[in-house]
Design a protein around this nucleic acid. Structure first.
Lengths: 195, 195
DNA sequence: GTCTATAATATGATAGAC
DNA sequence: GTCTATCATATTATAGAC
């Protein structure tokens, strides 16, 4: 056995982090940040508390790392169809967000946690503001391209509806007519614009 | 000094409870349930921890009492204009909810906590479901009276928009165009129906 | 009805061995 | 890189005096 190289160590660290963050995201999303203990995360991740603190300075920092992934993922969805015309981009954004929501309820639960509890600490509220701004900048531009009379207002309304739909679907997925809501949004923000 | 009567004792208890619940609502709403300790509530309410446990069996039960008030208040707003024609009722509901939101941000923060974290314990999720059902029953009926093609869907969409708007306004009241959103809702759910 | 003191426990975080 | 043992603290909740 040759000694492990720097790269190999880095790989192990990476895998460990991913494992921890996957579990943390799940627990934070379902139980909430404060109701989730480090012990629970460590236990479910199959590691010791000590090791967890080797990777993250504090529980707060672990939350930051996890929320970062949420931010990245959401901006990815928003900008997913960059090359299409504005109208098609909005439509795709609605469709893709809906599909993502169906398959990743806990993810969106954590997103809602970010929105709802962003003032837990400073870094979190900064991240929320950044995400909000990035989303708005991008989507306002799209509505402008579509010749909207009030692009800011429309972008805000679209975001607001995403939030409302996410909140309702995440809370009670069974009874909620997600696809119909999705179609309704396409009607309002895309179809009704023609003519 | 004559000895205090039963009625007088009851009055004292009532006042104490109201005081405690007012503070608890505020702290639960701003910091979240788990991040708020009994000590903080007692301190801010100007009483001892011991007394608090004289009134409430547990922290969880205190939350239940506080959430109950939220439920009552929301149903009050929904049914506020009972005597008006359906169209006017919807319009008033939107206007009144908007005004209430402006003046009672912490209240709505706690409502959103109920929606978002209703599975903290069983009683809470039951209350959420009851509120949701009561709201839907009432509003679906209104949309039916207005001759809507899909009353359930419209009632759900209205509720969803309330949630989204509340979430956004509560999170960042400064930049959010609440009145414009309110007007937008009236356009969609009332004005566009005529003809 | 109200307070102080305290029990019982859980939590976030660290130290040190391997 | 990983674990066990432990510290310091904070939390919910109770007991008992006034």
């Amino acid at each position: 056995m040759s000694p492990r190289t720097k790269v190999q160590f880095e790989e192990i660290r990476q895998k460990s982090r991913e494992n921890i963050e996957k579990i943390a995201l799940e627990l934070f999303a379902i139980k909430g940040y404060h109701a989730t203990s480090i012990s629970q995360i460590a236990e479910k991740a199959g590691i010791s508390k000590g090791l967890l603190y080797n990777y993250y300075k504090s529980k707060e920092q672990l939350l930051d790392s996890v929320i970062m992934k949420v931010y990245d993922e959401i901006m990815r969805i928003v900008q997913m169809s960059e090359n299409l015309p504005a109208e098609k981009q909005i439509e795709q954004m609605i469709i893709q967000t809906t599909e993502h929501l169906k398959k990743n309820i806990t993810f969106w639960q954590l997103y809602l946690f970010l929105v709802h509890q962003s003032d837990v600490h400073k870094k979190l509220s900064e991240l929320y503001e950044k995400m909000r701004d990035d989303y708005l900048n991008y989507v306002v531009k799209l509505f402008k391209e579509m010749g909207s009379k009030n692009p800011t207002m429309e972008a805000l309304m679209l975001g607001t509806m995403f939030d409302g739909i996410g909140l309702n679907y995440v809370t009670a997925p069974e009874g909620y007519p997600l696809d119909e809501m999705s179609n309704y949004m396409i009607e309002i923000f895309v179809k009704n614009k023609k003519g």
